[in-house]
Design a protein around this nucleic acid. Structure first.
Lengths: 187, 187
DNA sequence: AATATTAGTCAACATGGCTGACGTATCGCA
DNA sequence: TGCGATACGTCAGCCATGTTGACTAATATT
């Protein structure tokens, strides 16, 4: 019953530590989505719209099928939100040059503005958390989450954003992103 | 255009870094819930059932209103899943001694077994991620997520599990948890 | 005795997942 | 050249889980 700092009942500690991690994920994720959700609700959109806008903004010229791989939802589910985003002028479609069956998606100016407004709240939240936790903590945060993710997702985003942490080319205006995506996904 | 390791276009780096964080949350959270979701689907339950079971298991003797504060859903939503869990024998209810209006919730043996089965998949995932990332990374992970959470949630879980990382009393069989919760929440 | 708190219930609605089925244009290859 | 595979669209319906609003009942508190 007497216990010491080091290793007293490691199983209990371990259990408690793991449950803490699980709960942190739950609480943090909810908070992470709360502000965008509020903004989206104002304009009659939902979280699904944010996801689509986010990744189209991230990968301009992305195709429908690439977006489906990222989101892991059915094309019917995606179609529902995407057609609203198209109708209401947040997203534009052009046919693929190389492959005319493809629909290349990009944000319009309006879409980009909304994306900024939504993602800004999340960026701010992360920036504050990073600032108060410190650079080393950020590395740890990334390492743990990377360990939790699906390896195939991790693979993909690393192909798409190679060594972003030590990126060599900056301030390019990015007309190249579209070609990049096609090349890097190899499809 | 020439660039250096240190501080070349810090705004670009910062933007990229923050977006990486956002994406990690998205991908990791999805993976984190995927295995429990699969198990739940087998028995006709959903993620909402897992949440209820999880927190009832975590805080045996919790009341409905305390659970509502944790989950932040309406009582109607909770009632739907809770009544299924009661009917199917995963959760038991007893009236509060001090306040007869309260319903104190606990897991039955069946409920505890399901909770274990579900949470085990998440524990395993975290354990693997922790192991490969290292102890320091875990501290960083926690610091960042704590910075993202709602401060009031953070407050509450710290009142409920004071200094769990350096817990002094171990291996108590926990008949005391119920009283603890009531006392610590002060309600 | 009046008021506040805790919980339960009924009804209706929205979002965003899902399956299944079917249609069309285009590409690539045998 | 023509045919199968691929990329995308669409219609219809189901389910889980969130929401609001209205109302009841039991119990506690002041």
């Amino acid at each position: 019953m007497v216990d010491l700092k080091s290793g007293a009942n490691p199983l209990f500690l371990r259990e408690e530590e793991l449950r803490r991690g699980i709960e942190l994920m739950f609480y943090a994720y909810r908070e992470f989505t709360s502000e965008p959700d509020r903004i989206l609700a104002e304009i009659g959109f939902g979280r699904a719209h944010h996801r689509a806008i986010y990744f189209i903004g991230r990968y301009p010229g992305i195709t429908i099928s690439e977006l489906l791989v990222i989101l892991r939802i059915t094309k019917q589910s995606l179609s529902r939100v995407l057609s609203q985003l198209l109708e209401q002028g947040y997203v534009a479609q052009t046919r693929g040059k190389r492959d005319q069956r493809q629909r290349l998606l990009t944000l319009t100016e309006t879409g980009r503005a909304l994306e900024m407004r939504l993602t800004d709240t999340q960026r701010r939240r992360f920036a504050a958390a990073y600032r108060s936790a410190g650079a080393e903590a950020v590395a740890g945060f990334r390492a743990v989450l990377a360990g939790i993710m699906d390896p195939s997702d991790l693979d993909r985003i690393e192909r798409l954003h190679p060594n972003a942490a030590e990126e060599e080319e900056h301030d390019r205006g990015d007309p190249s992103k579209q070609a990049d995506l096609a090349a890097k996904t190899g499809r």
